[in-house]
Design a protein around this nucleic acid. Sequence first.
DNA 1: TATCGATAGAACATCGTTGTAAAGGCGACA
DNA 2: TGTCGCCTTTACAACGATGTTCTATCGATA
Lengths: 350, 350
Amino acid sequence: MPPRLKDVAAAAGVSIKTVSNVVNGYPGVRRELRERVEQALAELDYQPNLNARSLRTGRSGLVAMVVPRLDEPYFAELARWVVAAAGERGWTVLVDQTEGDPQREAFVVGTNRPRLLDGVILSPLALDDQALLNRDPKVPLVLLGERVSPAAGADHVAIDNNAAARAATEHLLAAGRRAIGVIGSQRAQGWTTPRVRLQGFRDAMSDAGVPVRDELIGEVGVFHRQDGAAAVHAMFEAGERPEALFCFNDLLAHGAIRALADRGVRVPEDVAVVGFDDDEQSSFSVPTLTSIAPDKPRLAQLAVQALAERIEADEPPAAREISAPFELRVRESSTVRRTVGARGAVPAAE
Amino acid sequence: MPPRLKDVAAAAGVSIKTVSNVVNGYPGVRRELRERVEQALAELDYQPNLNARSLRTGRSGLVAMVVPRLDEPYFAELARWVVAAAGERGWTVLVDQTEGDPQREAFVVGTNRPRLLDGVILSPLALDDQALLNRDPKVPLVLLGERVSPAAGADHVAIDNNAAARAATEHLLAAGRRAIGVIGSQRAQGWTTPRVRLQGFRDAMSDAGVPVRDELIGEVGVFHRQDGAAAVHAMFEAGERPEALFCFNDLLAHGAIRALADRGVRVPEDVAVVGFDDDEQSSFSVPTLTSIAPDKPRLAQLAVQALAERIEADEPPAAREISAPFELRVRESSTVRRTVGARGAVPAAE
DNA sequence: TATCGATAGAACATCGTTGTAAAGGCGACA
DNA sequence: TGTCGCCTTTACAACGATGTTCTATCGATA
């Protein structure tokens, strides 16, 4: 029912191919004809059929952004920037969620969602090297966040997690805290992000000559608020009294702060808390949360750019390791709370 | 390069169409042949080319979920449920953001993203009736959330905003608060959601015989945290001292609570706060936030179902008004705070 | 004026799939 | 044994777009 090239061609009195040439901006169409065709295009309100075009050309202009869960603020914010960056290239983004299921992640990279996608940006949680090696090497793939083996032929875009964890820890040390714990270790799973962050923490503690107490390494199942709260309760019920907690993401930190409030423990007076991701909420929570802020727009832009290069390349290029900057945003949760009643600075608008 | 029906047919020694029949589960293929074909399918790891299929059938299995911003928790949670509900129907969801731009919203409904989509679920912010009337009536459309004119030939799925606002207000009245304000009025824009919620508030106040003071109607530009904070600061700087604030979404409420903390005003002792949307954060904030909780999984399911019915119908059915349940979740921000030091109940896991 | 070259436009095949219609095989009945 | 009819399978066209090849037209030059 919608107009086709054929209809436009009939209206303008030219061949189908000439209309196609006009639509695609090819040179070599006489001005007079071009104008006639353009008028017909406008009159019929022609819209190309993308399925037909992509069947013919092999390009769909569609890329997938795959995250564990859309309702985790970090991924939602990241997705927002990826959609924006992809839009600038004329791409449309299809967002999918894996719920952290390894099978679904493997599916995403293993089969080119039947030829519908030009490429995939994946934020894996559970994906292991094996699944990546089994993947279809024809699907341009960029990993955003979690590191997997660099041998897998996919670019990897992330911040330097070790350096970021060190920065967070050094900040707490500089504030005079010694009994520093972490929330977010995941010994059970083989995932790399928590491992790298934990290593950064240990490095900083070791450099400062402060011992790490294993009892202050809080284990979690996943990185959600309730896991952060549960880890804090477990730690305190075991009799531990940390002076500071470095949480491996902001959700864990908010859960931890909530649990501390439930126990009547003051933040930051009794326990300083630092998070990771700098979710927007962290600028508004009570107390506001000190956090590692990855440059999300830049991460998204780099991922989209890397994907574009892979899509356009004839031969799959070698896997690259691409790094984005981060910064530590110091807020109330790790500093001495300002006097109650004083009007604080308005949190920086993001 | 990937195998086509043609390749499978050659491998199995049958015609292309027979393979197609097997792939699509049509009856009337002899068992022996079917098994031979299935084996060939498995050996070649055949995946149908969706572009070709959809060019031929006119169905793509792709629907769009269009929201203002993915990083607003309410929309992110909703999107999560929509993706899940659509997945059960075998659909893939393409998530897009309008940033609240009326032109982009109009574009979404005005042109069938060149024939790529089977349908659209739209959470509009700024869309007006005019744009809806101009839309392409061929694109199955379901509106999720904001109400627009029912004449526009699109189904509308939402909770009863007036009743929800009344429930929130009555809860504050029942707690003995009288000087109740709202945060989230948007007189400038013509959007309906804030208008309906404001009306529900006025209705409840009027029913209770409590006067509404215009100075306590907080205007905002958009529904973000910083707007909630700014509205509170403006209200207090004008010398107002409300006993309670009904915020039109949770982001506004979190911003408001932050602003109250900056001013040394206690929540809920001095000011009770109620939000709307029941974002996950609201179960963990300090204080936890009382909020209207729309049944999001149900909203998503109803929207997907309504869309499916529209897609399958030959004639566009009449526009329907579909309602989902909500409930008021009472938490710390509107009740007397429990004694500091006591261990509170663990927030209900979602 | 005749020939050549360059350029604009058209005809055709093709991408991978599925609907339609026709062909093929088989058993049953007369 | 011949014919009819049913059921399975095949051949063909079509969805809408684009790359390739070929033809027609025009102006310029000898």
